[in-house]
Amino acid sequence: MFDADVAADRVTAFLDDQLEKTGADAYVVGVSGGLDSALAIALAVRAVGADDVVGVLLPDDPSIEENVADARELCSDLGVEWREASIAPLVEAARETYPADFDKLTVGNLRARVRMCLLYAEANERGGLVVGPSNKSEYQLGYFTKFGDGAADVRPFADIYKTELYELARHTGLDEKFVEKAPSAELWEGQTDEGELGASYETIDAILKALLEEGRSVAETAAATATPVGEVERFAAMHRESQHKRELPPYPDVPR
């Protein structure tokens, strides 16, 4: 049973401990105006104080202005220093310079990796650590860009499912507008997480908990969650096939 009070304490203690243990000077958080990044920066401030947290806003053409405005307002309310820059010129320069016709998914991944570069540039300047706000649902499905939004120094929510983040957000007093938004990485116009994944997070989390936490088979999970077997197998395959995203790059042992 998920306990939001315990989770809040664990996350804040973890963030406090990691900053001290590594000797870093600050946390750098990319703030999109969505739930996960809003909760990440709020808990980082709770853990180490506003002076040791930097917000970075990196919108592009698909970004919804309301989300950008919410990100600005949140940073101001939390009292953190924040920077904002459109990544559109960088993404466009890459598309114009490289001799290939990128499809929609490739451009979306490019946007995520451009953001990663700038977050780490900020971290370099600050002697800081990049906070990755990906939740357990995304992490276990590989629903993130490798070396893009999947690149981080700490992942405070990697063991917290998306539906549990809603509980955690309400418990910590985060503005309800962040909870009510349709989850989206805004990698292209009209993109939403649940639309792309083809199921609600309530369904996805129930499937993942049955498969990963309870060790049920695909057939058992389908019966327990009242989900078609083919749908369960699709998510089980996403988990299996994205294992490389959750590991360091492999290398061969060389005998000596």
Rank of each mutant, 00 (worst) to 15 (best):
L141A: 03
T106L: 13
S137L: 11
K181Q: 10
D61F: 12
K177D: 14
P156M: 05
R83M: 12
L118W: 08
P99K: 09
S76D: 14
A182K: 10
S134V: 12
A100T: 09
A152Y: 05
C117L: 13
E65C: 02
S76T: 14
V130G: 05
D52K: 15
S86M: 02
D159C: 01
R126A: 06
V56I: 14
R111L: 05
W82F: 15
R72W: 07
A93N: 02
T97I: 03
E167M: 04
L90Q: 10
K162N: 08
F102Y: 15
A93T: 10
P89A: 11
V114G: 10
C117W: 04
E125H: 14
M116K: 00
V107W: 06
R170P: 00
V107T: 15
A123R: 00
R126H: 11
L141S: 04
G127T: 07
C117F: 12
R83E: 14
P89Y: 01
D149W: 01
V107L: 02
D149M: 01
V107Y: 06
F157V: 11
P156Y: 09
R113M: 02
E180T: 14
A50Y: 04
H171T: 10
K181L: 02
D77S: 15
P59D: 07
E167R: 12
Y143E: 02
D149L: 01
K146E: 08
A158C: 12
V56L: 15
V131T: 08
L74M: 08
N135S: 06
E92Y: 06
T172Y: 13
A85K: 11
L74I: 07
D60N: 09
A50W: 10
D103A: 10
P156S: 12
A85L: 11
A158N: 08
S137N: 10
V53E: 03
L105R: 11
E66N: 13
E122G: 06
D101Y: 07
N124Y: 12
A71C: 10
E122I: 08
G148I: 01
R155E: 13
F102W: 15
